[in-house]
């Protein structure tokens, strides 16, 4: 398998995220930095190191859908917002409010909202008036750390150390309403990804689950189990929804392919391949938004971009 190694972080790489154009990859690390890598002549080159925001591990990073903004969340309780000025991403604001580690950041599809979540059991929704970001709302619906957040249009989903999933919608009463779902994960939900009406969760219980989120309900479709022997930290759909990838603490990445449609019309996925990806834990996997390149990062300080040739 073709694979490019992106090496520059000095400690564990926690998360990677693609720019919506598919050409730039952002990575964040326990070395307190965020790095940007750009595809140039078929090679990923380090183009920027953002080291002027966080004083502890950077746990999460996310591009807005128009690529104008980059957000980061760190163990120092800070959310960083960067803006692209035509040549580089520059820090424009440090959002403070979380009491302890920030574990996830995510932009709504229209880039109007930034959400952050963390150890303090809360989800913060930030909005911005031009370039000035401020807190729109603090949502405390989970009983424990909020590990991950994911937007679907203007609906937000969060996964938690309390093993549950919560959906937040902006109601007609101008309030964020929420609904909690016990989705039968036996431990922490580490990641959420969404493709159209499919929602994928991964968990410390070594399973991943696929759901249909049609018509305001969350219907279980499939549980993927027996493939990984350690917590699954991350899951990612391919740009066309025909595949998804899982990355686990057992150092492996597995790829699943859309296989069949059941009698209710829901798609099922089957294992396509599973391989040793790194020497240590795989912390995050992210399919490119334009093609079948899969980026992944690990405790071994490395990032790899796999050409899966699916």
């Amino acid at each position: 398998m073709n694979c490019q190694l992106l090496k520059d972080h000095k400690e564990r790489v926690w998360q990677i995220a693609w720019h919506p154009n598919g050409q730039i990859l952002a990575s964040c690390s326990s070395d307190k930095t965020i790095k940007l890598w750009q595809l140039m002549n078929d090679q990923y080159k380090l183009i920027q190191t953002l080291d002027d925001c966080h004083t502890k591990s950077v746990r999460s990073v996310s591009f807005s859908k128009d690529g104008q903004f980059l957000a980061s969340g760190g163990f120092d309780a800070v959310v960083g917002v960067w803006m692209f000025d035509g040549s580089k991403y520059k820090l424009i604001q440090q959002l403070e409010g979380h009491e302890s580690e920030v574990k996830g950041v995510a932009w709504s599809v229209d880039s109007n909202y930034l959400a952050s979540c963390g150890r303090d059991k809360t989800v913060w929704i930030w909005d911005h008036d031009d370039l000035e970001f401020s807190c729109n709302c603090v949502l405390q619906a989970h009983d424990e750390d909020v590990k991950c957040i994911k937007w679907k249009d203007t609906t937000l989903y969060s996964g938690s150390y309390d093993n549950s999933l919560i959906r937040y919608t902006y109601g007609e009463d101008d309030e964020w309403d929420h609904k909690q779902f016990q989705i039968e994960h036996q431990s922490t939900i580490w990641s959420i990804d969404i493709f159209n009406k499919l929602l994928l969760t991964t968990s410390a219980d070594c399973t991943a689950k696929l759901f249909s989120i049609q018509d305001g309900t969350i219907k279980p479709i499939q549980t993927l189990q027996g493939f990984h022997k350690e917590p699954i930290y991350s899951g990612s759909f391919s740009y066309d929804g025909l595949y998804f990838a899982l990355g686990s603490a057992d150092n492996k990445i597995s790829i699943y392919k859309k296989d069949a449609i059941d009698e209710l019309g829901y798609p099922h996925f089957a294992l396509d391949q599973i391989f040793d990806a790194f020497e240590f834990d795989v912390n995050c996997v992210a399919f490119n938004p334009k093609n079948y390149l899969l980026a992944a990062c690990s405790d071994d300080q490395n990032i790899k971009v796999f050409d899966l040739q699916l």
Binding site: R12, S30, K56, S57, R59, F75, S100, E101, K103, R119, D145, K147, Y161, S187, T188, A204, P231, A249, D281
Partner: peptide, 15 residues
Amino acid sequence: DKQVNDKERYLAAME
């Protein structure tokens, strides 16, 4: 058990 085996929790504790 859950806390000491949660990588994010124990790594944050170490910071």
